[in-house]
């Protein structure tokens, strides 16, 4: 520990003290290392190294709502794909529009994640069914990864494919029991499945009944 003190005892040894004594300049660094690492630990624990992620959400302007009401009628029966978020992280989807002959609508329960009856599979299937160019997106992605096309080119083409007018139109409707997480997750699924046109809408009483009937 105390090498500095050693020279102290040598002093008494005799003549040698007269000569300029050689002091041991080694200092024990251990406490300093301790201190250094303690501070590092402190800073690691208190810092937020990376910014949290964020997801963009664009909602239609309020003024557009009236126009949307008319637009909604333009949504073809075969294009419509509605997702209903219910309680306990469960959800339903049905294809087609809610009209008077709603008996024909077949609500299907979908699961999260991947798998045969997952919502992702359903979204991919519907998009592919409606959009003849849908399968080009992964091809473009591959080309982008291989460096054959530029980032802008990729984005431009994907946007064009996604905004195909006759493509699937996904409507997301959350019941009051759904959580915020469900909403974020479903928006994520939509992004993953490359769905072009989607909207968050208010759930109708009929749809609430549908949720109840299917889950109970």
């Amino acid at each position: 520990m105390a090498n500095v003190e050693v020279s102290e005892s040598q002093k008494k040894g005799g003549k040698k003290a007269i000569r300029g004594k050689k002091r041991d300049t080694r200092i024990d660094m251990t406490p300093m290392v301790d201190l250094g690492f303690l501070l590092i630990t402190f800073f690691i624990l208190t810092t937020t190294l990376n910014q949290p992620q964020a997801m963009d959400l664009i909602v239609p302007a309020k003024e557009d709502v009236l126009d949307n009401e008319q637009d909604r009628n333009k949504v073809g029966d075969e294009q419509a794909f509605t997702i209903l978020l219910g309680a306990n992280n469960r959800m339903l989807y049905y294809e087609g529009l809610f009209t008077s002959n709603s008996d024909e609508l077949k609500p299907v329960e979908a699961s999260w994640g991947t798998g045969e009856n997952s919502i992702r599979a359903a979204l991919v299937r519907k998009s592919r069914e409606r959009n003849p160019r849908y399968d080009q997106i992964p091809v473009l992605q591959k080309q982008l990864n291989a460096g054959q096309i530029s980032e802008e080119e990729f984005r431009e083409q994907v946007t064009e494919i996604r905004s195909y007018k006759q493509g699937a139109i996904v409507m997301i409707k959350a019941s009051p029991e759904a959580t915020y997480e469900n909403m974020v997750d479903i928006l994520d699924e939509i992004k993953i499945a490359n769905v072009g046109i989607y909207a968050i809408m208010e759930i109708t009483p009929q749809e609430l009944t549908m949720l109840e009937e299917t889950f109970n």
């Binding site: 949290p52 963009d56 994520d188």
Partner: peptide, 11 residues
């Protein structure tokens, strides 16, 4: 917060 696959950063 829930997690997502988004890679955008909070401004």
């Amino acid at each position: 917060p829930p997690s997502s696959t988004s890679d955008a950063k909070v401004p």
